[in-house]
């Protein structure tokens, strides 16, 4: 499949996701994660900063993509938008690691279909930042992410309505993004 086709496929998937298709959204985010991983690894190795926190950049990018979906123009292409967000986050991460000069970051389209797998690593920014959330929010995010529970199961366990769990989850994700931002300044 050519890059253009993948791009159109991604755009279609994003539209379905925005319309509420959770399964497609999950698949799209997995595909994007693979591409961003390749892109980040390439950029890190060219800047010689080592790739210990590649997965943090992938996660930060996914979170930004999720929270900034409304800035995608809804057109035929999704990859340039994803690429711009990933580039922004990669540059942030490299700056954080003290890289002064940046090699130009490989064009995103070049890395679209690369099959990169996650590096199973021990430390995770996200986990540390989640630990700083308020207890209720922390419970909800952990339940849905780390423990893989559904919204419904989480709601039952915490004796909340599903709506309240969703609202709290959304708020927690925003807080997570801002904690990440503050940690990187």
């Amino acid at each position: 499949m050519g890059d253009g086709q993948i791009d159109e496929k991604w755009a279609g998937m994003m539209r379905a996701a925005i319309a509420g298709d959770e399964a497609i959204y999950r698949r799209l985010l997995e595909e994007i994660a693979r591409s961003v991983r390749t892109m980040a690894r390439g950029a890190f190795s060219r800047a010689r900063v080592g790739d210990a926190d590649v997965e943090d950049v992938v996660q930060e990018t996914l979170l930004a993509i999720h929270l900034k979906r409304n800035t995608w123009d809804g057109g035929l292409r999704l990859a340039p938008w994803v690429g711009a967000i990933a580039r922004h986050k990669i540059i942030d991460a490299m700056r954080r690691r003290g890289a002064r000069r940046f090699q130009p970051i490989e064009d995103f389209e070049m890395t679209l279909a690369a099959p990169e797998v996650e590096d199973p690593h021990t430390r995770s920014d996200a986990e540390r930042l989640i630990a700083q959330l308020a207890p209720r929010q922390r419970d909800i995010v952990r339940s849905i992410s780390l423990e893989g529970q559904s919204i419904a199961a989480t709601a039952t366990r915490l004796s909340m309505t599903e709506g309240a769990v969703r609202v709290a989850l959304h708020r927690s994700l925003k807080l997570l993004a801002s904690a990440w931002r503050n940690a990187s300044q």
Partner: peptide, 18 residues
């Protein structure tokens, strides 16, 4: 946290068109 676990959380957060 694994990336797949973060994706679980993101997918569970519905989009509100608004």
């Amino acid at each position: 946290m694994k990336t797949s676990q973060l994706i679980d959380a993101l997918a569970a957060d519905p989009s509100r068109p608004g």
